[in-house]
């Protein structure tokens, strides 16, 4: 199993395509950092709106490394599924397209094992992508913008508000958030893998995975009450942003943030279970389909 995993990883990392994802992430992060370094104030003005009429806020302090990472993740974690799909949805179909799948499947390795190894390899790729994101979006931002308390701008139902998390209470939240993101992105891995089983070229399943994710994400963010109540809970994309839950700090009875707390851990836990359920479902479907599949490519 370990040998097979090594082989799969070797394949992933020998391909130039793999590095597109890393390059894309780096580029996006650098653009964000550059933009905020030179014009973060206008973003802050937008977010703070009329609060500045009543309060004096040091915006240069508000735009710090922690805040930057949050803003970057906010955008990136919507795009990263595409990058993950690029690799995951290609795993089987890409081999089918290249013609290597039939050769691989004449080797004394069970299809289940092979699929699991491919899943694991894509998962490791995803984790590497997240680690890279942590390095450039978090640690590089901290280096450029420094450490300070973080403001979280949040809309909940009809309410908008700002949470302030003290700087000594943030790092663990990022670790938790990246961990959560790894689970969330693994759903995309499993979905991509499942679609990959049915296709004989990589474009189909990649496009299909991306379309499903985009479509569901759009529906998840429509903010139409009927959809929010009846459809949203059933879309896995609604749970992809659950990492933010770690930044929704708990409040005491007088609305003061409680250090080290999370507002709604049960909701995050539930989201994690739902995501794990999706992974399990997609992966089992992929295994069942792959075992039965006639290799005609």
């Amino acid at each position: 199993m370990f040998t097979l995993l090594q082989i799969e990883l070797h394949k992933i990392y020998s391909r130039p395509r793999t590095y597109i994802a890393f390059a894309a992430i780096t580029a996006i992060v650098l653009i964000f950092q550059f933009a905020f370094k030179y014009d973060g104030q206008s973003y802050m003005d937008l977010m703070l709106q009329n609060i500045q009429d009543n309060f004096e806020i040091d915006k240069s302090k508000a735009i710090n490394g922690y805040f930057m990472c949050y803003i970057i993740l906010n955008t990136l974690l919507i795009q990263v599924p595409i990058l993950v799909a690029l690799v995951a949805a290609d795993t089987i179909s890409g081999e089918a397209n290249m013609g290597t799948l039939r050769l691989m499947l004449t080797k004394p390795v069970s299809r289940t094992q092979l699929l699991l190894v491919k899943f694991l390899a894509s998962f490791i790729f995803t984790v590497c992508l997240l680690i890279w994101m942590a390095i450039v979006a978090l640690f590089l931002s901290l280096l450029i913008f420094g450490q300070e308390d973080m403001l979280v701008f949040r809309v909940k139902g009809e309410e908008s508000f700002i949470l302030q998390i003290t700087k000594d209470d943030i790092m663990w939240r990022y670790f938790a958030a990246f961990g959560y993101a790894a689970i969330a992105l693994t759903v995309i891995v499993a979905l991509g893998l499942l679609l990959s089983v049915f296709a004989e070229n990589s474009i189909g399943p990649i496009v299909a995975t991306v379309c499903i994710v985009l479509f569901f994400t759009i529906v998840s963010n429509m903010n139409i009450p009927v959809i929010d109540r009846n459809v949203k809970p059933y879309l896995f994309t609604s749970y992809l942003v659950g990492w933010k839950g770690f930044f929704y700090i708990g409040l005491d009875s007088s609305d003061q943030p409680i250090k080290g707390s999370i507002e709604n851990w049960p909701a995050i836990k539930k989201s994690i279970y739902i995501l794990l359920g999706h992974i399990g479902f997609f992966l089992s479907m992929a295994i069942i389909s792959f075992r039965k599949k006639d290799i005609l490519s």
Partner: peptide
């Protein structure tokens, strides 16, 4: 089997 397709990038 038919054409021996291999990993072109390796």
């Amino acid at each position: 089997i038919e054409k021996p397709d291999l990993y072109k990038y390796l």
